[in-house]
Simulated assay, not measured.
Amino acid sequence: MPQPDERPQSGTELADALKQLRKAANLSGERLAARCAMSQSKISRIERGRILPTVVDVERLLKALEVPDEIERELVALARRANVQHTSWRTAAEMGLWRQQDELKALAQSSTIVRQFLPAIPSGLLQTEEYARQVLEPTVPGDVSWNAQRAVRARMESQEVLGDTSRRFIFLMPEHAIRWNRVDREVMAAQCAHMANMSERPNLDIAVIPQSAKVRAAPLNVFVIYDERLVSAELFSGKVVLRDPRDIAYHLNLFEFFYSHALTGDNATAFLRSVSDDFMRERG
C-alpha cells in the first residue's frame, strides 16, 4: 500500500505543471503563498514533489495563479487522478504480502483514529493466528500465491499497534461478516470469542450491525479511514488509495451511517460471545 505522501506519476506531472505556472506568472513562492493563504514551505514541498497536494490545494493555487478555465479543468482532473492509486493483489504478492502488513502497521502507527468497515471478514488486526493462517491460504482458482507463513507472522506482529492506548480503533462489521463460514467451526468460535475479549480494551470499539437491522444501503467493499488523511478501499483486484478530501469526507459519512445501525459497547461484546457459542454448538 502506498504511504500517505508517496506520489504516483500523475503527481510528478502535477508538481511540474504548478511550478511552471508559478514561474510563468512571474511570482515567487512567497508571493504565491500570500495570495492563496498557504505557507511558502508547503508550496515548495509541493513543487519539489515532497508532498502530494490535495484537489483543494490545487484549486486554491490555480485560483491564485489566475489560469485559464481550460488549464484549470485539466490540472484539477490531474490532481484527482494523482490522489487515487490502485495496487493489484498480484503486485502485492510479487512484492511480498508480508510487506503490506508492515505498511498497514506503519499507517496505523501514524494515525490517531483508524476506522475499518469490514463487510467480508474481521480485520487482520483482530484475527487469531489460526484464523489468519486459514484465510491467507489461496483457495479460489486464479488467486495469486504468496508466502502465507510469512504473511501470517507479519499479520500477528502488526497487531502490536493495538497496544498503544493513545490511538483509537473502530471496527465495524455486519453480522454476516462474523458468521461467514470461511474456516473450521472451532476456529470460527475462537475468533468470535477473541473479538469479544478485544472489544473490552479501552481504545477498541468493535461494532456489529445485526441482520435484524434495516439498513437502506449496501455494504459494497472494505474500506479503512486513517484520521482524515486517506482512505484505503479493497476490491477483488487489489486496493485503491484515495486522498481527495471529498472522497475522505464521503467515506466518513458512509462509516457514520453504517455505525448508526450497529450494536456497540457491552451489547456488541455480548453478541460476539453468543455467536461464538453458536459455532461451538455446531462443531458436531
Rank of each mutant, 00 (worst) to 15 (best):
L18W: 07
E47T: 00
S10N: 09
L78H: 05
A64S: 14
V67P: 00
K63G: 15
P8F: 06
T87S: 04
G11E: 08
N26M: 08
Q40G: 11
W89K: 08
A25S: 15
L32F: 05
S44L: 01
N83R: 13
A34E: 15
R80M: 11
S10W: 02
R80N: 06
V55C: 10
L32S: 02
T12H: 13
G29I: 05
L78V: 00
P53F: 04
A64Y: 03
L32C: 08
A82W: 06
T91D: 12
A17Y: 07
L21T: 01
K23H: 11
G29D: 04
E66D: 12
T87M: 07
R81W: 02
R60E: 13
D16Q: 14
D69Q: 09
H86V: 14
E30Y: 11
L21M: 03
L61V: 14
K23C: 05
P68K: 06
S39T: 15
E59N: 15
T54S: 15
V76Y: 12
L21K: 01
V67D: 01
D69T: 09
R60V: 08
D16H: 13
S10Y: 08
T54E: 08
V84F: 05
L62D: 11
A34V: 11
S39M: 10
R22F: 03
L18N: 06
A82R: 07
P8W: 02
T91A: 11
I46K: 00
A79N: 04
E59F: 10
A77C: 08
H86F: 11
E47G: 00
L62P: 10
L75P: 01
H86N: 12
A33D: 14
A25C: 09
L21H: 10
V84A: 12
Q20D: 03
R31H: 11
